[in-house]
Design a binder for these strands. Structure first.
Length: 413
DNA sequence: TCTGGGGTCCTAGGACCC
DNA sequence: TCTGGGGTCCTAGGACCC
């Protein structure tokens, strides 16, 4: 069987875009972000600078590091444009994130040549039309194609011949496998497993005991390149959330109230925009020592009203704090809504589930809130997100990441 | 070296139903 | 009345990915 699955991955995407926009940055170590590194150029990675790293730490590792603010609109535009190049070859494209996608070219080789030729053309076009480097892996399975693109980086192409795929796979470190992060890597290292080949030779029963039934079975299969996953072209999110790191702040209502309202606004307005109210509300409270606690509640009826979501979240947070009375400082708050439903049209959805008489369906307060959400949504439709909101301005200074960056990571609901 | 924000999936225990 | 077993939902936590 011919390898027909491509995994295409733009190299150091945000940093490459910045170097494209400003030629004086080319060939230099740069980091997008400030307080935290959102992306680092390959020149910066040489020094050990990585995404997610505190800016201060990055500067220590690489004193000549250049920080740039970030052109988030350009990232969206160029990421979309790169995916569109894949769309020109096949409709079987599964987008994983802003800068990464799978494509299955099995049905279009008679038009465009072998998978390897198609991959080379995609790379050439992305470079010529967008000015960006993109690496591509080609293999029989998604997992192997993804590994191949990692091996191909930066700016390369790796086609894995089915005749030698296990030899290719088995020499590589387990950390390259999908699903092996720091914790699993450490557990495997404890029993002497460092390479995918060693993993493959390990009895799957032993892996299941070490990692749990699902993870053990999955890794045993992937190590032999048994990957049954097909491309999923129309994935929709199963949850929507928002979070905000706070530094160290007192665990008091005057702190968490406004933050929760702002988070609820972000989440609920997205749910309303796609008519996907949700039944389960989860909050996460992280304390000063970075240990975090979650609390959730599942309602009888799905909700998407901002004030309703904020109130439920606040009740859950109060529950967390009551159960952890010694914790006086919080460092992060998060709200997530899951069990999303389809609602064909925007229904007159009103607070249910809280035993507060004032919030009964059809009450004056409920109706007023429904109207407020609708009014805010309409204003934003015309004038943009920033035009109106809850406490956004007051919180602006504390936000470590711009809203434009958050939006890049949002999945289609 | 304590560091962002958006997600997904798995596990384990308990409640509840048949 | 006691007992067993399976399925499903909910909750809390953890690991992982980009």
């Amino acid at each position: 069987m011919e390898p027909t699955i491509l995994h295409a991955d733009l190299d150091a995407f945000y940093a490459s875009v910045e170097q494209l926009l400003d030629p004086s940055l080319r060939g230099k170590p740069i980091a997008v972000g400030g307080g935290v590194v959102l992306a680092a150029s390959y020149e910066a990675r040489v020094f050990g600078v990585r995404g997610g790293m505190p800016g201060r730490r990055a500067r220590e590792l690489c004193p000549q590091l250049i920080f740039v603010g970030g052109n988030f609109g350009e990232y969206q535009r160029l990421g979309d444009a790169a995916i569109k190049v894949l769309d020109d070859f096949t409709p079987l494209v599964e987008r994983i994130s802003i800068d990464e996608a799978f494509a299955d070219v099995a049905g279009c080789t008679h038009l465009f040549g072998s998978p390897a030729e198609i991959a080379a053309t995609v790379r050439r076009r992305v470079r010529a039309e967008l000015g960006l480097p993109i690496s591509i892996g080609v293999a029989r399975t998604k997992h192997l194609a993804k590994i191949a693109s990692q091996v191909a980086k930066p700016d390369g192409l790796v086609v894995v011949d089915p005749a030698t795929e296990l030899a290719f796979l088995h020499d590589l470190p387990v950390g390259l496998m999908w699903g092996v992060g720091p914790a699993t890597k450490a557990r495997l290292a404890e029993i002497g497993i460092e390479t995918i080949g060693q993993l493959a030779k390990t009895h799957s029963g032993a892996l299941r005991r070490l990692l749990g039934p699902a993870a053990g079975e999955k890794l045993a299969s992937l190590a032999w390149n048994r990957d049954p996953r097909k491309l999923e072209t129309h994935r929709r999110a199963h949850s929507a959330g928002a979070q905000s790191a706070l530094g160290k702040r007192p665990a008091e209502a005057h702190v968490f109230g406004p933050v929760l309202l702002h988070l609820a606004d972000r989440v609920a307005s997205r749910l309303r925009a796609k008519s996907r109210p949700g039944r389960t509300v989860t909050v996460r409270v992280r304390f000063a020592d970075l240990h975090a606690v979650t609390r959730s509640v599942t309602l009888d009826q799905p909700i998407s009203a901002t004030a309703m979501l904020a109130e439920i979240a606040e009740e859950l947070v109060r529950g967390v704090l009551a159960a952890n009375p010694r914790e006086k400082t919080i460092s992060l708050l998060a709200i997530s809504v899951s069990q999303l439903e389809e609602s064909a049209e925007l229904q007159l959805e009103l607070p249910l589930g809280l035993d507060d008489e004032k919030q009964r369906p059809g009450s004056k307060k409920g109706l007023a809130r429904f109207g407020a959400d609708r009014a805010i949504d309409k204003i934003r439709q015309r004038f943009g997100r920033e035009a109106v909101g809850y406490g956004a301005v007051a919180l602006e200074a504390r936000r470590s990441v711009p809203d434009a960056f958050r939006e890049l990571a949002e999945k289609e609901l």
